[in-house]
Design a protein around this nucleic acid. Sequence first.
DNA 1: ACTAACTACAACCATATGGTTGTACGTTAA
DNA 2: TTAACGTACAACCATATGGTTGTAGTTAGT
Lengths: 113, 113
Amino acid sequence: MVVVSKESEESLNQLFRALADGTRRSILVRSLTETPSVSELAARYAMSFAAVQKHVAVLERAGLIQKRANGREQLVSTNHARLQRAGELLEYFESIWRQRMTQLDDILLPKGK
Amino acid sequence: MVVVSKESEESLNQLFRALADGTRRSILVRSLTETPSVSELAARYAMSFAAVQKHVAVLERAGLIQKRANGREQLVSTNHARLQRAGELLEYFESIWRQRMTQLDDILLPKGK
DNA sequence: ACTAACTACAACCATATGGTTGTACGTTAA
DNA sequence: TTAACGTACAACCATATGGTTGTAGTTAGT
């Protein structure tokens, strides 16, 4: 069962918005297989450290990643559950779509009654 | 098999960006089960017709919906394939995650060798 | 104790976004 | 044919976004 629940619209907005940027998707993917520090991440992109730091902050606010202090470094890892949440909402849309298809089937291919 | 392909980053940005707004998600869901005109949609939201029209345009640019002229009306319907595309990318992320988990399993629970 | 590395954050800028109102134009109905 | 309807689009506004540079605080290494 797909739960739509009381999750705030704003929370979903942030979730999808965070995914709507190539640099952030790249950071997210990297953090799926590694646990890079912010500066290790920054070294990979052709932009300032501060810019990457902002992208990380957007992902963090969206709940897609979390940071863990390790000495002077901040290690970035993904929040898998949160990533799944985006997928669940899309699955919910899918289910609405399928329901419609089923209804059309009922009209075109009546079985009961 | 999840296809990442040559789809432009910008195209994916538009796709997720379009989903990052409550009004647009609502329009999308409505257009999954109905084929409303733009003005029918506009009547449902507490904003101007032009504002709704803009949201529809964003969804259309993202490829999530299409409009079909019917006399003076523009009927809106969803592009299911495009919606699936968003889900596929998330599944791709999932697969990377699972791969990592498998690798961890290999380390923690070696079977071969 | 110093210095370099890593991070945080403020200030600033250009552009994008989400909303508004107003105008114009094709289509339908009386 | 005229009036109302549905749409398109321009102009405008406030705020958000994505980037920059600069300053400052911690932590690590020598």
